[in-house]
Write a protein that binds this DNA or RNA. Structure first.
Lengths: 118, 118
DNA sequence: TGTTCGTTTCCATAAGTCTCGAAATATGCG
DNA sequence: CGCATATTTCGAGACTTATGGAAACGAACA
């Protein structure tokens, strides 16, 4: 994700919706394994068409990614994008003074169930 | 700011707009001194009525505060709210594993121009 | 190849947001 | 009190977003 104002606005907008925020957090917690669209729709209790709309929205914002596994499309969170977003907000905190770490959750953090090490 | 999903969605939505994101960052950098509505409108190059709409939006989301100084209304960023927002996003990063500090920018950070002390 | 399953696209509708001029509302000054 | 200044509220128009049913699409399995 680029860190210009426009793309940040898009990312914030993508997360500023009940279903999408919940969905994104599900993916964050699901790690690299990700979740199939159908499973997400069921978990959220919304029709597939509605889910597809939200998935497209998050994808357009660069926050999630798509991969195919058999008949299913698996969605995963883009950890880099989330870090960039948080980084942007922190970067401008406190008048630019260094008061925050840069990337608390690195790329490697995409395997949430174990301690970050590799 | 409370950290339930609903209020987070509201905060994200408040920031998911070009003018408001810029405005919020201006206030973040302005520190406790804050900025008068008129000065903000001029800086953003938008009519007062439009600005007022955005200020109300950010206020409703709990991200900024209002104080009167003579004829002017001074707006300031709510650092606690921003920390809560970022904290919420980080909290759910990496499947809940501890990978982020809790409040990088403390309450005391509200005087950005000088070293945090009080 | 035909069928099934998972997902997306299309469509319409309902609801919300952004914008800004004009009028209304406060505050302060003389 | 009356006038000037600072900001908000009101109202209307254009635009965007959310929702879900029905149909289309694509991949895989037999």
């Amino acid at each position: 994700m680029e860190t210009n104002t426009e793309s940040i606005v898009e990312a914030l907008g993508a997360l500023a919706q009940e279903n999408r925020l919940t969905l994104f957090r599900m993916l964050i917690q699901a790690g690299n394994a990700g979740l199939a669209a159908g499973a997400i729709a069921q978990a959220l209790g919304i029709p597939n068409s509605s889910l597809s709309f939200h998935l497209a929205h998050l994808t357009r914002a660069g926050l999630i990614r798509q991969r195919r596994d058999g008949r299913s499309l698996i969605y995963t969170a883009d950890y880099e994008a989330m870090n960039a977003l948080v980084g942007f907000l922190m970067e401008n905190c406190c008048g630019g003074a260094a008061c925050a770490p840069e990337a608390p959750c690195g790329e490697d953090a995409a395997q949430p169930q174990r301690k970050v090490s590799a």
